[in-house]
Design a protein around this nucleic acid. Structure first.
Lengths: 257, 257
DNA sequence: CAGTGGTCTAGACCACCGT
DNA sequence: CGGTGGTCTAGACCACTGT
């Protein structure tokens, strides 16, 4: 009954369930997902925040608790929400280590994850090259921020990395010359940009003289070149990253499902 | 009501819902999943087969249609079942091309998938080496089948590959000297072994003289070494595969979610 | 048209959490 | 203890399929 009345007298959140003949043809649980996701992206519920209970959301959106539950399910599936029985549903707040290990797929011979550190970080502002504009879906003269750094495992340099991000999404980033080791965490908490997923292209290459010098190896040694494009929750590209990795005794781990 | 009676008078499939105090503490929908999965693995429903309707299964298992649905959902999610609205639920029957492209993650510069062919295939029977026994969870003197072959893209040799499988799971495989290009399809339809997922370790290496000769490249050229362990539906390892790939103009594609 | 999956509801009961 | 998520049911209606 509550839902029936709410369905007629709806004033808030008309996006989900307002008039009797529904204009939006998508299933209600999809609309619930979209609505909740929009609020998270808009910053209404920040990482770590407690959402209203399923019944409260159901009342507010004019649908049944089961339908709310189904919508939230898909966001839990995507790792955006976390349920804690007896306590409530929370916006996922991944630790820097969580995010690092999700995207850093290099392990040692024993199968343990490698935690890299960063050094020799440089930040420059440029206009996008053709390749950068293509990768990030920008116009060719849009401003980008280009970060280069050397990454270390156990103090040994093993990755030469270039990160390119659109300046418009991250105003002021690196202006003080400081960039943290885990930049996705900065994206999240400083700019409200949540990293959703990434696509990587891997290819073995021979070390050029320049990179060999950076990594203190012989020119021509085999390196793993990893080209990554990272996407936000809306599916827009937010980062283009090229890593040249000297994987002596290490390997990249992929899982095929 | 039907479910109530079935719940009391249960004779078939006591595994899901038989006595009033349930012995199995797992949720009913998990038990439905397990039960249906077991029947598929036992060959009761073969790839392409039509399952009973959700209501029929619900009656048979003594649970409600919604619970059956939830159990089947998880199998659909895993790609083991396919739903077709208005027609029914079917055991997934992946074409050889489906399976090939799921596990063969190499694309060309334009982003198109590469379809490899095979040549120079050799099949040998051996006892497992230490490394092979470890990878496949075998005892050290268990019999294995070792397949070596060269794989071609557009007629050009680009992968030198070694596949190791436990002889006990695949009796008679390759006895006639013939091994198809897509062996997972053979596993499925000849031996009823469904490939579930795989874990891969990637590393750039320099081509040895031997492999360089096979692939007609210079010794020392950078190759991608891919070590794969493949698992069946029960999570048991069924294949250990080492591929040495000359990815000139090609790349391995990985997706991080 | 009958039969199937797909959506949605209302309500029950359980398991878990913090006070 | 009250409030939360987790499971399960029974039944309604819709959308799609093949005959």
């Amino acid at each position: 009954m509550h839902a029936r009345e709410a369905l007629k007298n709806r004033t808030i959140s008309p996006s989900v369930n307002d008039a009797s003949p529904r204009s939006d043809r998508r299933p209600l649980y999809v609309q619930v997902r979209t609505d909740v996701l929009a609020r998270i992206e808009a910053g209404m519920w920040k990482p770590g925040a407690l959402l209203p209970s399923e019944f409260a959301l159901a009342g507010e959106l004019g649908v049944s608790q089961g339908t709310v539950r189904r919508g939230l399910d898909s966001l839990v599936q995507d790792g955006l929400l976390v349920r804690r029985q007896g306590r409530g549903t929370f916006v996922a707040d991944h630790t820097p280590a969580d995010v690092l290990f999700r995207f850093f797929r290099i392990h040692d011979a024993a199968g343990h994850r490698v935690a890299p550190t960063s050094t020799a970080t440089r930040v420059r502002r440029r206009t996008a090259s053709r390749a950068e504009a293509d990768a990030l879906n920008l116009a060719i003269n849009d401003r980008i921020i280009r970060i280069t750094r050397i990454r270390l495992a156990d103090g040994r340099p093993f990755i030469s990395e270039t990160v390119v991000i659109p300046a418009s999404r991250f105003p002021g980033l690196g202006d003080d010359g400081v960039v943290p080791n885990t930049i996705y965490d900065l994206f999240q908490h400083q700019y409200g940009v949540t990293v959703s997923h990434a696509e990587e292209q891997l290819e073995p290459v021979a070390a050029t003289a320049r990179v060999a010098g950076q990594l203190r190896i012989k020119p021509g040694a085999p390196l793993m070149k990893i080209v990554r494009i990272t996407y936000d929750l809306s599916g827009r590209p937010i980062e283009w990253r090229i890593s040249l990795c000297h994987l002596k005794g290490l390997h990249y781990v992929a899982s095929v499902r």
